Amino acid sequence: MICFALLAHEDEGALRQQIKNIRKYNPKDAFIVFYNGGPDRDFGKKVCREENVLYCPYSKPLTQRSSGRFFYDVMRWLEERKIRYEYLVYLEYDIMFVGRGFREMLESRMKGYDCLLKFVKKETDPQKATWDPAKLMWAEWKDWRPFFHLDHFFRTSSPMSVYRHGIVRKMLAGINRGQIERLFRSTHIRCLGEMIYVTLAKKYGARCLDHRNSDLRYLRFRPELTLREVQDAKRRPDVMFVHPVKNRAVMKWIWEH
């Protein structure tokens, strides 16, 4: 069973359409947990009630500096509620599905693996760090090293990251809740979620698989995908999702097709 953890912060119409998009291309037993990262505390609640989507009560207003806690909040709430799933998938508002077969792909490709991620890189030397968020992690390493109990960390790209429930349990069991809450309050690290979860997973022995090259053309940070690229992606049977899609005209085309 797939659980989609969905982070969004504005535009309830787009949120409703994204939920319908997820459901159209995925099995009926897949379910969604919505996390409201915006300042409006009521955002998404009506949509969740009407679309039968779980609303994460730990939702908080997030910034780029604080968005790293989203996945942790969803993980621990699912565990506290004893909600069963096999795969936990990281979704944001600008991810859309364009083809079927996602569960079949997970079951086939993740045999023997705990995570499906993008570009996992090990960071071992602050002098060799080239990515700005990794430099920020090294700048705060005196605070984070006691949390990880490691002399290094890993980084990846969060959108469409997939973690098996088994490795999520190990990660949560090893987290000191008071310690991580203090770190979330004090950190100035951007893109924290792209380092903390893969590092914890690797710490507890996770076997991580990279997304296929065919996925990466349509799973990127920038620039946002054009309509022509999305149309090309939909014609390809090996492409199931696209990111980032932020243009309303492109979103509308996906919803209509």
Rank of each mutant, 00 (worst) to 15 (best):
L106T: 10
Q179M: 13
R76W: 00
P244L: 07
L136A: 14
Y93T: 13
K128Y: 11
L88H: 03
R169N: 07
F102L: 13
I95S: 05
F34C: 01
A233D: 04
S59M: 05
G44I: 09
M75C: 13
W77R: 08
L88K: 10
P57V: 02
P159V: 13
A129Y: 05
K24E: 06
R103T: 10
K121T: 15
C115R: 04
V33T: 05
H257Q: 04
A139Y: 06
S108T: 11
L15F: 09
K46I: 13
K118M: 10
H257L: 03
N21H: 08
K111I: 14
I19N: 04
A206E: 00
Q179F: 14
D151I: 12
H9I: 11
M195Y: 07
G37C: 10
R217T: 06
G112L: 06
E50K: 14
A5R: 08
R76P: 04
P61W: 12
L106I: 11
K202T: 14
G68Y: 12
W131D: 02
T199E: 00
G166K: 08
W144R: 05
R76C: 00
D114E: 08
S214E: 15
E51I: 10
T187Q: 15
K28D: 00
G68S: 08
F43M: 02
K24F: 14
Q17D: 13
R222P: 01
F184M: 02
L192G: 10
F147I: 09
G38E: 06
P27C: 09
S66I: 01
T124I: 12
P126Q: 02
Y85Q: 11
R207Y: 02
M110N: 06
G13V: 06
P39V: 13
A206H: 00
R185P: 03
V89S: 01
G101W: 12
Q17F: 12
S66T: 15
Q64M: 12
S214R: 11
C208E: 10
K121P: 03
Y25T: 01
K135S: 03
T63I: 07
I2R: 07
E104N: 01
G112D: 01
V198E: 02
H149K: 15
F184W: 14
